[in-house]
Simulated scan of single mutants.
Amino acid sequence: MQEQLLSRISACEAENDRLKRRLHWQNFVLIGVALASVGGTAYANLTKSAAQTVIPSITVRELVVVDDKNVVRARVGGNIPPAIIDGKTLSRGGLNNGVAGIMLYDRTGVERGGYITFDQGDNIALTLDNQKKQQVFFGVGPTGTAALQLWQEDEMLDLRADTNGARLTRSKAGAVTNQYPETFIKSASCEYYRGGIKDEVPAGLSRAEVKNICERRFTASSCEPCLPAEK
């Protein structure tokens, strides 16, 4: 009789231990589920909060965007650095600084164009480049002069509207070959050229440099009276 009682007591204790272990495991699972639920809710709330966050203003001198290979693909800056083409550093329109705006680069890091303003001359321009040089230029001056230029090798097509009138000009190797309508330089523009176009380049340009610019915009017969050869 005593042995039967001890056997029953032992069986009860074993069953009690089994129930305790089962209850402990169930509590562990419930706690895990609760924590996961709380964590998921918190993450969702944080994500929702971050998505709704609006930064009213950011002030920077330069913003550089890179791709997954760490190649610079876009640059927004108040002082854009000179262009680098074929390992050579090139100024922008004869300027070494004072250029602000947005520049774009291809997958190799080569500059392919931008939307920029020039401190000197106060011009604004949209440029598109191939991998070697500029191929499209669309610019507007501070007083309303506008020009659209396209290059192919040594040929250029220039659609321009300025104080001398609106015209379409084709040039080759820097000299006008066709112009419609043929336009002659007005006296105010002539004085501007003779002064070395200092509105655009404060230091001024030489007579030869100015004449080259003139002959890309007008026929040689129109430029000659305005810019006669220096004696």
Score class of each variant (00 low, 15 high):
residue 62 E to S: 14
residue 126 L to D: 08
residue 172 K to S: 08
residue 182 E to K: 14
residue 29 V to A: 12
residue 2 Q to C: 06
residue 67 D to M: 00
residue 21 R to W: 05
residue 151 W to G: 11
residue 65 V to K: 01
residue 97 N to Y: 04
residue 4 Q to A: 09
residue 126 L to I: 14
residue 46 L to T: 10
residue 225 P to C: 02
residue 105 Y to T: 01
residue 111 E to F: 07
residue 22 R to C: 06
residue 216 R to I: 03
residue 3 E to G: 03
residue 57 S to A: 11
residue 202 P to A: 02
residue 6 L to H: 13
residue 30 L to C: 08
residue 94 G to T: 04
residue 69 K to T: 05
residue 104 L to M: 12
residue 98 G to V: 00
residue 13 E to Y: 11
residue 30 L to R: 15
residue 8 R to I: 12
residue 78 G to K: 11
residue 173 A to P: 11
residue 100 A to H: 03
residue 78 G to H: 01
residue 49 S to D: 07
residue 46 L to H: 12
residue 38 V to L: 13
residue 50 A to G: 07
residue 29 V to G: 06
residue 209 E to R: 15
residue 162 D to R: 05
residue 118 F to E: 12
residue 140 V to I: 15
residue 101 G to K: 00
residue 49 S to Y: 07
residue 48 K to F: 04
residue 10 S to E: 15
residue 65 V to C: 03
residue 192 Y to H: 06
residue 30 L to P: 04
residue 79 N to F: 01
residue 82 P to I: 04
residue 136 V to I: 15
residue 111 E to Q: 11
residue 47 T to E: 13
residue 9 I to F: 13
residue 26 Q to V: 12
residue 87 G to Y: 06
residue 9 I to Q: 14
residue 193 Y to N: 00
residue 201 V to Y: 09
residue 221 S to M: 06
residue 24 H to E: 15
residue 211 K to H: 05
residue 77 G to C: 02
residue 120 Q to A: 13
residue 27 N to K: 15
residue 207 R to F: 02
residue 156 M to I: 10
residue 103 M to Y: 10
residue 137 F to I: 15
residue 17 D to R: 13
residue 75 R to K: 15
residue 4 Q to K: 14
residue 117 T to K: 08
residue 15 E to W: 03
residue 20 K to P: 03
residue 174 G to R: 09
residue 26 Q to E: 12
residue 169 T to W: 04
residue 44 A to W: 12
residue 134 Q to W: 05
residue 211 K to W: 01
residue 192 Y to L: 07
residue 154 D to G: 07
residue 66 V to G: 02
residue 128 L to G: 09
residue 221 S to Y: 10
residue 82 P to L: 05
residue 72 V to W: 09
residue 136 V to S: 04
residue 168 L to C: 06
residue 43 Y to T: 11
residue 83 A to F: 08
residue 173 A to E: 13
residue 188 A to D: 12
residue 163 T to H: 02
residue 208 A to F: 04
residue 108 T to W: 08
residue 180 Y to M: 11
residue 200 E to T: 14
residue 40 G to Y: 09
residue 103 M to V: 13
residue 135 Q to F: 06
residue 161 A to M: 10
residue 79 N to A: 06
residue 31 I to K: 15
residue 189 S to E: 08
residue 196 G to V: 03
residue 218 F to K: 01
residue 70 N to R: 12
residue 221 S to C: 04
residue 85 I to R: 14
residue 111 E to K: 08
residue 71 V to E: 00
residue 191 E to N: 12
residue 231 K to S: 05
residue 229 A to E: 10
residue 179 Q to F: 05
residue 209 E to G: 03
residue 70 N to F: 04
residue 209 E to D: 15
residue 176 V to I: 10
residue 150 L to Y: 14
residue 140 V to M: 15
residue 65 V to S: 02
residue 71 V to F: 01
residue 134 Q to P: 09
residue 136 V to L: 15
residue 6 L to G: 08
residue 75 R to T: 11
residue 147 A to I: 15
residue 73 R to K: 07
residue 131 Q to P: 06
residue 97 N to M: 01
residue 112 R to N: 05
residue 152 Q to R: 15
residue 161 A to T: 13
residue 124 I to V: 13
residue 209 E to L: 05
residue 231 K to Y: 05
residue 152 Q to C: 07
residue 15 E to M: 08
residue 111 E to Y: 06
residue 184 F to Q: 07
residue 215 E to I: 02
residue 189 S to I: 00
residue 96 N to H: 08
residue 229 A to R: 11
residue 204 G to C: 02
residue 109 G to Q: 05
residue 116 I to D: 00
residue 52 Q to W: 03
residue 153 E to F: 09
residue 107 R to A: 13
residue 73 R to V: 07
